[in-house]
Amino acid sequence: MSKSMRIFTLALASVLLIAGAASVPAASSEADFKAAYAAAEAANKEAGSLRNQWTVTAAALAAAKKAADAGDFDQAVAQSKEAEALAKASIYQATSEKELWKTLEIR
């Protein structure tokens, strides 16, 4: 392989590598956002019934809505998923603390 051929192959491989790395999943749609947001809201509502909502969940939900209003559904879906994860963590906390609080009690 000539020197120029080798350089060309290397350049081609680099371009392909960069293109591969930069490739992203298909853009999220409004329907994706609506589904993700509904799931997050449902989880947060459950946390509310346990009297244990987190402020950061509300902030992530608000950020999701703001991104959706701006037409950025990738960001809106990402924030909704973040909100759902936070809400689920708050549910886990409330459920486990039903017994665990006793370990902190002064006796």
Binding site: N52, W54, V56, L86, A94, E105
Partner: peptide, 22 residues
């Protein structure tokens, strides 16, 4: 009231007792 005092809550996972007892 006692349960509320010792129950951890919030993203920081603090109870009232975390600060005011421990």
């Amino acid at each position: 009231g006692k349960r509320y005092f010792y129950t951890r809550r919030g993203q920081l996972n603090f109870s009232c007792a975390t600060c005011h007892v421990q």
